[in-house]
Design a protein around this nucleic acid. Sequence first.
DNA 1: TCCTACAATGGACAGAGTCCAAGTCAAGAA
DNA 2: TTCTTGACTTGGACTCTGTCCATTGTAGGA
Lengths: 136, 136
Amino acid sequence: MSDLLERLRGRGWRMTSQRRVVAEVLDGDHVHLTADDVHARAAQRLPEISRATVYNTLGELVSLGEVIEVSTDGRAKRYDPNAHRPHQHLVCSNCGTIRDVHPAGNPLADLPAEERFGFAVSEVTVTYRGLCPSCA
Amino acid sequence: MSDLLERLRGRGWRMTSQRRVVAEVLDGDHVHLTADDVHARAAQRLPEISRATVYNTLGELVSLGEVIEVSTDGRAKRYDPNAHRPHQHLVCSNCGTIRDVHPAGNPLADLPAEERFGFAVSEVTVTYRGLCPSCA
DNA sequence: TCCTACAATGGACAGAGTCCAAGTCAAGAA
DNA sequence: TTCTTGACTTGGACTCTGTCCATTGTAGGA
């Protein structure tokens, strides 16, 4: 993620301590934090950071394509920094833990034309559910 | 859906006018109403029905397996009465319209064991997105 | 160093959903 | 048919997630 800051700067993103902290919190693999999680972790380093700033920054990272927004259930959206390698998600139906997974096959090709109802289909998301090892 | 009421009665469901109206509103193919939609339509026939009752009844229908809860975006959940024939969803990224679709293939089989992280995977939901004919 | 446009703040607000105490009623019993 | 009772409904308060906006602050170029 260290080069994320560089990429953002290169795109003319104005660098502030708040944005830096949010970007740093979203570092690593299998990271799927809610906005509130991000706010809590960011506030450990920058206690006065506001919720609105966290939401704004997450929204910008999403529209820049650096972070993916994941809504697996009807609850809070999660933010996934693994935006540069296509993947799907595996969710524990009990505790909500999320893992990134890379299934074989191409689900887009599995949808026959007569099942497309004239839609210009451009995207597929696949969500696997089951019990994680700790919950099983 | 006419036999839904029979099935529910057979399961010992106490039949009230509110429950009957909610079940009747959820009738048909390609029906994907929000709880608020259901409440609005139910209220046309039974003006004094409360939001809490609609939520309670929808929740019961879901746990009885008669209705599927669909959360396609971060917005309101939708309720799909087509629970007895497995299917996936095709969503318009512009207007949110939903269609039931029946893709070929078996996405569960596409997830290799080494990508399951020890989860007992039991379910897959596939959501196709694109522009519907009216929005394209 | 100074400016200024862009960013952060925090508090109000909105939408979706849950909870609860009190009142109502479906359906079995007599 | 009427009675009884536990299940159901109500509406209002509440929570959670997210958005909006006027005000204040500041990064970074001149």
